[in-house]
Design a protein around this nucleic acid. Sequence first.
DNA 1: CTGAAAGCGCTTACAG
DNA 2: CTGAAAGCGCTTACAG
Lengths: 340, 340
Amino acid sequence: MVTIGDVAKAAGVSRSTASYALTGKRSISLAVRERVLAAVDELGYTPNAGARALATSQTRVIGLLARFLDDEFAPAMLQYILGVTNRARELGYDTLLVSEEDGVRALARLSASRMVDGFVLLNVAEDDDRLPVLRAASQPGALVGLPGITKGVDVFDLDFAASGRVMVERLHALGHTELILVSQPEHVVERGGAYVWRLADAAMDRAQQLGVTLHHYHASSSQPGIGRDLNRYLDRHVAATGLLLNNEAAAAALPRVLADRDLESPRDLSVIGRYSQEFARTFSLPYSAIDSAADELGRRAVQQLVARIEGGLELNAKTVVDLIPPVIEDRGSIAPPPSR
Amino acid sequence: MVTIGDVAKAAGVSRSTASYALTGKRSISLAVRERVLAAVDELGYTPNAGARALATSQTRVIGLLARFLDDEFAPAMLQYILGVTNRARELGYDTLLVSEEDGVRALARLSASRMVDGFVLLNVAEDDDRLPVLRAASQPGALVGLPGITKGVDVFDLDFAASGRVMVERLHALGHTELILVSQPEHVVERGGAYVWRLADAAMDRAQQLGVTLHHYHASSSQPGIGRDLNRYLDRHVAATGLLLNNEAAAAALPRVLADRDLESPRDLSVIGRYSQEFARTFSLPYSAIDSAADELGRRAVQQLVARIEGGLELNAKTVVDLIPPVIEDRGSIAPPPSR
DNA sequence: CTGAAAGCGCTTACAG
DNA sequence: CTGAAAGCGCTTACAG
C-alpha cells in the first residue's frame, strides 16, 4: 500500500512536510504543496484510517445505536437511520451501525475501544439503560427520543405533547365534540415508550379544557388485531366524529375498516394521524397527519453531535433539548363533523 | 485511558507478555495469565481499535454498501441490513453502513483508507458500477443480488428464475390455465433490477411449456397508481384465475382492490406473491408468497465474507454463486380455479 | 516460558 | 518555510 512516506519521496520532501501539505495545518510554499498534491494524485494515496486515528485520537466515525422492539413498526426505523448516515457523510463522518440486542454492552465496547468519536442513540426510552453508560463514556452522545433525565446529553424528538394538543384543537375548532384516540399498545409504554403517554396525556388535558369528550385506547400494533380493535371502538362510540391515531398499524388498517363500514373520510369521520411522510407515501394513506420527522431528527442529532466532537460548541456548552413542533401534513381528511 | 502498558505494569510482566496472554498466540504460564487477566479486569482494559488495526492490518469491521433506488420498496431494505449487522456481530465484526448516493466513491474511499476488512454490497444491479472497483480492491466482497458477471466475488440471491417457474407450476397443477403476472415497474429493470426479468422470463417459459396463458405487466410500485393498474389488468383479463405478484406495492394494494370488486381469494382468484415474511406480517397480507429471504441472504453473505477475510477458505478458493431456492409460505390463497 | 525492541502509518511539537 | 524525531497503542519476529 502507498504511504505518506511514498508521497514524500515522490515529491522530494520530508514526511512531515507532506503531512502538513495535506492537512493544511501549517503554511507550505505553493511549489511544495503542488508537488505533494501531484504525488498524491499519481500514487493514489489515501491516509490509513487506523494510523490517523491512533495519532489524532479521532476516528471520524460515529456510532449509531439502533434499538428494535417487538410491537413497534420496524420500517419506520429506516428513516431515522438514513437521516443519520446521510447527514454524517455530509459532515465527513462514517457511521457504525449497531443493532445488537444488548445496547449497553455495545456502547461500552465501542467507547472503550475508541472506535467512534461519538454516539447517536435511537428510540430512547423514558428510563433508558444505555444512558448511564453514555454519560460515563468519554465520547459525547446525542439522542433521538426524550428520556426522563436529559442531563449530559443532547436530545432531539418530536414534541409529542404539542402533537396531542394540536390534534384535539384542530378538530375542536371545526366543531367536533367527541373523539377517539388510538395509541400504541400498552407494552410499548411499559418498555419505556414515553412518547405514547406524552401525546395521550396532553390530548386528554386539552380535550378536558375545551369540553371535548376523548376516548383513549391502546390498540394492537399489527394486523389483523388492529382492524378488530378499530371496529370495536367505532361500534362503541357511534357518536364520535373524529379519530386520532398515534399508531402506524392503525393508520395502515383504517382504509379497509372504513370501506367495510361504508364510511368515508372526512365526510363521516375526520381522521388525523402521526406518522412519517414516507410511510404515508408508500401506502398512500389518505389521512392528514403530523409528520414524525424521522429524517430531520436523525440529521439534527448528528449535526449537534459533530459540533460537540469538533468543539464548535464551547466546552461544556449547555446541552440542548430540541423538541420539533408538530407540522400537520394536510391530506384533506379533516372537516367539520357531519350534521345530523 | 488505560493501555496494555498499564496492564503489564499492574501484572508485573512485559507488554509483550501481556499481549500474548490476551491474544493466546503463544503459551503463557497459568500464573502469569491469571495475573494479566486480573489486571485487565481491575483496570477495565479494552484494546484500542486503531492501534490494533495499525499493527495487524485487521479492523474487524465490514463495510455495508446499501443502495436505495426510487421506486423500490424501501422498508424491505431494513431486513437485509439487519441480517448483515446481526450475523457480523455474532462473528465478532462491526458494520460500517454507507448509504451515500455515490457507492463507487464510498467503496474506493473505505477500501483505500483500510477502514474495513471486506464489503457486503446490497441491491446489486445486473451491470453494477461498484463491481469493477470492488474487484480492484484489496479486500474481499460478497454481494446480495446477482450481477451479470460474477467473477471474483461471492454472490447470494433468491433464485428468481426458479421462483417464476414454481409460481406457474403451482397454479397449473391445480388446474389454472390463464394467469396474470404483475412485476415491478420498468424503470427498476432499466436501472439493473435483473431479478424482475429473471422471474418473468422463467415464468413465461414455463407457462408456454405447460400450455398456460400468462399475461405479463410492469406496474407502478406505489399507490394509488398500483391500485388502478391492478383493476385494469383484472378488467382486461376476466378469464384469468390466478395472479402472480413480483411487486410489493401490488401485494399491499390488492386486499383493497379485491374487496372493491367483491372478489375473494382464493375462491374467485388464486394469488401468489414474492415478498418477505416480515412484510406479510406487518400488513397481514393474506397471500401465499415466496419469501424474499432478506435476512437469510444478508447472513449468508457475511458468513462467506468473514470466511474469506479470515482465510478459513483456501486462498483463492473458487467464488460461490448461491441462489436460494424459493420456499412458498402457504397462507391459503391458492386453490383450484372456480368452476364455471 | 518471557522480555526488549522494532514496526505498523500517521501527526505534531521541537528546532532551525 | 521545512526537516528530524518522538509518540500514538498495539503486535510480533528475534533472542534468550
